[in-house]
Design a protein around this nucleic acid. Structure first.
Length: 136
DNA sequence: GCCAACGTTGGC
DNA sequence: GCCAACGTTGGC
């Protein structure tokens, strides 16, 4: 089991929309490194749902329910996507500022590569962020 | 809205 | 295959 973090601008696709629809394809990724991360995802993997730009906080958890397949919105046919399902919201959102000020999280890909929209999360980081957000 | 960081494109 | 120009992301 692997853990991930997926960024979305709430203007484009928000956590509320994800919850409403439950399962949705994570299309529109046009970055090779992010695509490579999605390729590595397996059914049952979990990911944080992060609101970039507006909010800048982790708001919930999604589960990968369909592994990497071609993204129909990519005309060039180079990129793919996965399907994710809303699992649960965070009782308390975990903000970027909190993550930055937590020493144990300072080396997260989220911090180090701020432009990478799909990035891996270690098991330790996952557990700590869940705790900070009020989840077990 | 600005701008730094960084990825991509295209000329050579 | 290098690198300058350009475009995009995302924090501030």
């Amino acid at each position: 089991m692997n853990y991930w973090l997926m960024k979305s601008e709430p203007d484009v696709w928000s956590w509320d929309q994800q919850v409403k629809k439950s399962v949705e394809s994570w299309n529109g990724v046009r970055n090779y490194q992010a695509a490579a991360n999605m390729k590595a995802m397996k059914n049952g993997d979990l990911a944080f749902f992060y609101h970039s730009n507006i909010g800048k906080e982790i708001v919930g958890i999604v589960e990968i329910v369909k592994e990497y397949y071609p993204d129909p919105t990519d005309e060039a046919g180079k990129f793919g996507m996965v399907d994710v399902k809303a699992v649960k919201p965070f009782p308390t959102f975990v903000t970027l500022a909190q993550i930055k000020s937590t020493a144990a999280l300072a080396d997260m890909a989220l911090i180090k590569q701020s432009r990478l929209s799909v990035c891996p999360v270690t098991e330790k980081q996952w557990a700590l962020i869940c705790k900070m957000g009020g989840l077990k």
